[in-house]
Design a binder for these strands. Structure first.
Length: 306
RNA sequence: GGCGAGAUAGCUCAGCCGGUAGAGCAGAGGCCUGAAAAGCCUUGUGUCCCCAGUUCAAUUCUGGGUCUUGCCA
């Protein structure tokens, strides 16, 4: 079993800083579990660690793909898994830090394994949806996989399409894949949750977004648009970016866009919170109560059992 | 000053021919198996600006007032 430490928490909770300290102390490296920091050129709005920080501690899975490419939980699971194995072979305990809950869950608890669904299959159902509507697809799903259909809302385009694609491509309903999924994990995780006070976090989010303006998020976006990137590109679907579309299409002021960006970041933090409520953490600690020595202590106990 | 337009949920607004109101967003809570910073679900009693009139009944019609806003001067 490979030991790993996770540092999790809502956006803006300060997990990156804590993870850095711990990595330095343990002489190990960080793996980012962040669905937006994987993208190159999305720097300011994703609060990516600076060059200096990245020199101090090696950060994996940052800046690995282009904005026009998609990245999935499966990609993360595979890549992070390999990196963990390599690090542990060097006697380094991998530290995973990031707010993308699904990524960490995929790594720790696995996904049912099927190859990437080909675009043709995806396309087929998109066309079917355009012709007959979403409701039709949901009814279709209820015939081939009633359990999935009952769990998935009629309006949940993403999951309806996914369930149909998986069934079409593999010949097996998605709920069957779930049943036969492997649940053993090659990891032994020490999971640490950074839990800030709600109103304090919201204040930090406000400040963080203001800082992004100061750092030049608008220029960053402008450059991207000038360099051939488009709002429809997968990477551009990010809080702190898409809210500025009205500004760049001259429909609203950047100030109003900023207000939206703050709201959406708060909404996002809340969604993360709800997700984390169901996770089992070994240590839950508020950002201001946390100290390096306390962390080392906990990690020490963890290491004794290895 | 003249001629219009508007005043309805925290915000932006819908409410045909009169029967005391409803969407989106925000807020709150929840879900989540390859788009997850995504996607989805639940949750809306507010002096319908004020006053008077018509009417069995006015947010909805009429008159007056107040405020906001557009155009012309």
């Amino acid at each position: 079993m490979i030991p790993i430490i996770t540092i999790e928490g809502p956006t803006g909770s300060g997990k990156s800083a804590i993870a850095m300290q711990l990595a330095l102390e343990l002489g190990t490296e960080l793996i980012s579990a962040d669905s937006r920091q994987v993208y190159q050129k999305l720097d300011i709005g994703t609060a990516k660690p600076s060059k200096e920080e990245q020199e101090m501690v090696h950060h994996h899975l940052i800046d690995i793909i282009d904005i026009k490419e998609t990245y999935t939980a499966g990609d993360f699971k595979n890549q992070a898994g390999k990196i963990c194995a390599v690090l542990w072979s060097q006697k380094k305990i991998p530290i995973i830090a990031g707010g993308t809950g699904l990524y960490i869950r995929s790594l720790l608890h696995g996904l049912f394994t099927i190859p990437q669904v080909p675009i043709e299959v995806k396309q087929e159902f998109r066309e079917l949806q355009e012709k007959n509507g979403l409701e039709f697809l949901h009814q279709y799903l209820s015939k081939i996989d009633p359990i999935a259909a009952s769990k998935i809302s009629v309006n949940d385009q993403q999951r309806i399409l996914r369930a149909l694609e998986v069934w079409k491509f593999t010949g097996t309903p998605i709920t069957e894949h779930w049943k036969h999924q492997e649940h053993t994990s090659p990891f032994r995780a020490l999971r640490i949750f950074i839990s800030p006070n709600r109103s304090e976090l919201y204040q930090r989010i406000e400040k963080r977004l203001d800082t992004m303006i100061e750092k030049g998020i608008l220029r960053e976006i402008e450059d991207l648009l000038h360099n051939g990137y488009d709002w429809r590109d997968p990477g551009m679907n990010a809080v702190g970016y898409r809210e500025f579309i009205p500004y760049f299409t001259k429909l609203d002021s950047w100030q109003n866009c900023l207000i939206k960006a703050k709201q959406h970041t708060r909404n996002y933090a809340k969604r993360q919170w709800t997700w984390y409520n169901k996770c089992n953490f070994d240590l839950t600690i508020s950002p201001d109560a946390i100290t390096l020595s306390k962390l080392i202590d906990v990690v020490g106990h963890f290491c004794v059992d290895l």
